[in-house]
Design a binder for these strands. Structure first.
Lengths: 344, 344
DNA sequence: GTGAAAGCGCTAACAT
DNA sequence: ATGTTAGCGCTTTCAC
């Protein structure tokens, strides 16, 4: 005998399937009916078929989260936050790792139409016109984690990279650093561009000159960070600021390999304050761009959207105006940015 | 107008819903019919409703992966591997972070009955009688990543911790270490127990005596590793072996804080060879227990199960005997276990 | 309070 | 080759 259904229960309890449904959903029923049904269900080990429920109810109680790379601690932090909000609200989480492939991200957006999940949180690393178009035509509620061009009618949660970078640069400046090198990620990503922008602005605010030779652009990983820093060392920086923790860790490696001490000879700072920041020695000063907070807010926005969508079904079909919130950055100071050694 | 369905397409194309279904599924149809349907579908932006399909077809093309903690790089590695196999086979991935709470794990097992996903990969950190019972009564295919008591009719993939520990201990021995401290995880977890066992055995194989004072038990994280190592330092170890990379990283931190050099004064080795192993300085020697491999194999086993389940539906209802495979460990040597300084 | 029946969107017999 | 129809398991009117 395969899976029990309400039919098997109805037969066993000697009632109609409607009564079974009512009892199982906690609607009114006579005590003896209730009891018969509950007993039958328990004996049969009945579990309601969620697919049938979804088809009838028009919703799956599933949420989708699509991000570039599940191997990156930043996105892991988001997953945790989203998972926790979703779970609390009775939703499951469907995961997509898109490898930042645009075509994959668009496919995910399109797949909203297949009704597999009730809503989508999308975290693209770059946003193309195709994205914007797909977002306009999305078949269900979407929240974007990232910076959207204005005018796109979609909720979004953004990080404030510019302010974040400023926090770190000013901290380095205030602890006596004057030659602050910057190892950045690719220019064709939103984070890469924003962080570069923030760096120039922050230098200016501190009254420091922008020196192109103190800036490197490379991929967002440890190896790349080490290689780039290696090359920058000729410029005699007294601090290296990595556009994410991996880059900073790479910088630390390059410095160690050269026999330079952190922070006595060169200070190091990173961004994201991921688990990696505390993995090495000395522990890294890092700017928390609020991955956890952004994940949490995105999930909450999405849930609110879903609620209002359900309300609108009966009521006014008005769509609430899209919301954009920005998570504030936070500087976490650790040993990698202590004072420079006084050159007595 | 809400989502288009095959009905809207049929009306627009002037054919029956059956023809629409056929065309959309690539079954035979006259060219002009095909064309009319495809055009209508495109114009309407039709996307098949996966829920309805699932209800009809009895499968969702979704897989579930439940693990203790999405924040742990070991499980992240599994997620990546599973995701990749699943995607290739046309399945989506549903994720559950159980926080190693037994009740949660059992709930996931029970929820197999709701037909939300076609199969489950479960990675419990400890296995209770309740687990075994739930596994026996599972409503669908399950693959366990972990060590199952024999006799449980479920596919499983296990790590060989004992051999893995031996690899590291022997390596330390061969590079001249004789006082090899071991910082282990909790005794009430399967990994914790196995690794402790392996350590004793490995010492014996090297002809070293087991000294209880060189062993610490604590939680599987960096802080705990640092604290435990701190306490072990009185015993003057010449190597510290952590039962995972976090523990080893904690050990490294404690050593750095005491001004001890790695590896000149004390060697450090970890387990799992997660991303963390390469995050610090010096990079950690670590034993790869094959998280990626285990995830991959688990996914493949599950897919095979699903295939044979579908075959059995028409044919013999025989269940293939459960398979258990073991992923071989692999030692990755890095700078943290170089030779000791000669005390010339 | 309870049962009969419709219908969610789709696929697959079956009939034409 | 195409149309008609039943039915996947469930919720929800609608009568009684």
């Amino acid at each position: 005998m395969p899976q029990p259904t309400i039919i098997s229960i109805a037969e066993r309890a000697g009632v109609s399937i409607a009564s079974v449904s009512r009892v199982l959903n906690g609607l009114g029923a006579r005590p003896d009916t209730t009891e018969k049904v509950e007993r039958a269900a328990a004996e049969l080990g009945y579990v309601p078929n969620a697919v049938a429920r979804s088809l009838k109810g028009g919703r799956t109680r599933q949420l989708t989260f699509a991000m570039p790379d599940i191997g990156n601690p930043v996105y892991v932090a988001m997953v945790r936050a989203i998972q926790s909000v979703a779970k609390a609200a009775g939703y499951r989480l469907l995961l997509h790792s898109t490898d930042a492939v645009v075509e994959d991200e668009l496919a995910v957006l399109r797949s909203l139409g297949d009704r597999t999940s009730d809503g989508l949180i999308l975290c693209p690393i770059r946003i193309t016109d195709a994205h914007v178009e797909a977002l306009r035509g999305a078949a269900g509620p979407v929240v974007v984690i990232g910076s959207l061009p204005s005018g796109v009618p979609v909720d979004s949660v953004r990080a404030d990279s510019v302010a974040g970078v400023a926090l770190a640069v000013r901290h380095l400046y205030e602890t006596g650093r004057r030659r602050i090198a910057f190892v950045n990620g690719p220019a064709d990503t939103v984070p890469g561009r924003k962080r570069g922008e923030g760096y120039r602005k922050a230098l200016a605010d501190c009254g420091l000159a922008y020196e192109p030779d103190l800036v490197a652009r490379t991929d967002f990983d440890i190896e790349a960070g080490a290689a780039a820093t290696e090359a920058l060392l000729d410029q005699k920086p007294d601090a290296v600021f990595g556009a994410n923790d991996q880059l900073a860790l790479g910088a630390a490696r390059a410095l160690h390999a050269r026999g330079l001490r952190i922070p006595q000879d060169v200070a190091v700072a990173g961004m994201d304050d991921s688990v990696l920041a505390q993995a090495g020695w000395p522990p890294l000063t890092s700017v928390d761009l609020g991955s956890t907070e952004r994940g949490k807010r995105a999930a909450e926005l999405l849930l609110r959207r879903l609620d209002s969508a359900r309300a609108a079904a009966d009521d006014t079909p008005e769509t609430p105006t899209p919301r954009t919130t920005t998570a504030p950055p936070r500087l976490v100071v650790r040993a990698s940015t202590g004072r420079a050694a006084t050159d007595s």
